[in-house]
């Protein structure tokens, strides 16, 4: 075990492809034992950032350490201590489950290989199917196998790149239970996702869009820090109402959540002013609420999009 308190400590990470800056001066500090959520839309640079942290991509600019090792010069040391689960299933589909795990075990030079593989298979509940080809597993099982494979060498840091994409809700829930178990054992986890309900389960959330970090805070402080105000309205004719309010002064965004509309703005008074003509409508029921992550991110996104253009 290395003993650094800040497991990931990078500054100004930048990755440029051609004339496109995919990650733009990215700073990140991840304390030991934290579950750090990496949130952002598709193509926002989450994967690129993770790859730079574990030495799979060389940043064009910036520097930093991962587990105390230089991310540019000492990627070999980092690779030994990090478990990286790729977004796309990247184990060998034409190897059996056992063969895949044995290969990984050999790669990390584990001494008690057979026991570790057996143990992992039993924990996974795949012991009976160990000789089945990995390619024949369903999406949920593949994801569990991939997670088990990248944890076999007992890494200090887990980098999970959208681990729950395309996985059913039950499997997702079980997956997050596993993540919390692992974190309780002192393993640091950086997990990227675009599900808000998953982000809430993280200790910290960094929101990234268009290659830039928009906000980075402990998850319970995040909403307060942005200072957004939200009203929730239910009732009839919401589509029409939504059209009327969109773009009104003081209203920054209007979003539909199930049977309700959430109307948000930064300025509480201006927001109240904007909705006041409809507040006494009997067919509608209004309620001021604490904004959720989703509203906050839509708000952040709208702002950053303007910056980007």
């Amino acid at each position: 075990m290395t003993n650094v308190e800040t497991v990931i400590d990078v500054k100004g990470l930048t990755k440029v492809y051609g004339d496109k800056t995919v990650v733009d001066h990215f700073d990140l500090k991840v304390p030991r034992g934290a579950v750090y959520g990496f949130l952002g839309p598709n193509g926002s640079g989450k994967t690129t950032t993770i790859r730079m942290v574990c030495g799979l991509l060389v940043p064009n600019d910036g520097a930093g350490t991962c587990l105390g090792f230089d991310v540019i010069k000492e990627s070999a040391e980092i690779k030994k201590r990090v478990g990286y689960m790729t977004q796309k299933f990247s184990l060998w589909e034409d190897l059996t489950i056992r063969e895949n795990l044995e290969f990984v075990a050999r790669m990390y030079q584990m001494d008690n290989r057979n026991e570790r593989v057996d143990e992992t298979l039993k924990d996974l509940g795949l012991f009976a199917r160990a000789n089945q080809l990995a390619g024949s597993l369903s999406g949920g099982w593949k994801q569990r196998l991939a997670l088990a494979a990248c944890m076999m060498h007992e890494p200090e840091l887990l980098l999970l790149d959208e681990p729950t994409a395309g996985v059913d809700p039950k499997a997702r829930r079980e997956f997050w239970d596993t993540i919390h178990d692992v974190a309780d054992r002192g393993v640091t986890i950086l997990v990227s996702t675009h599900y808000m309900d998953e982000a809430i389960q993280c200790d910290y959330i960094a929101y990234i869009a268009y290659g830039k970090k928009l906000i980075d805070a402990p998850s319970h402080e995040l909403v307060d820090r942005v200072g957004l105000h939200t009203w929730r309205v239910e009732g009839k004719g919401l589509s029409a109402l939504s059209k009327k309010l969109t773009g009104a002064k003081g209203v920054e965004n209007v979003a539909r959540f199930g049977t309700a509309l959430h109307i948000s703005g930064m300025d509480a008074d201006a927001l109240r002013q904007a909705i006041s003509p409809y507040l006494n409508d009997e067919t509608l029921s209004w309620q001021e609420k604490k904004p959720g992550l989703e509203e906050v991110f839509i708000h952040l996104m709208t702002g950053s999009e303007d910056n980007f253009k």
Binding site: C54, L56, A76, K79, K80, V82, Y84, T86, K88, F89, S90, L91, W92, E93, V104, M107, Y108
Partner: peptide, 14 residues
């Protein structure tokens, strides 16, 4: 092509 290269590269192999 199969995407397994990313996994190989993430492992400590020279």
């Amino acid at each position: 092509e199969r995407g397994t290269m990313e996994n190989l590269l993430a492992m400590p192999i020279k």
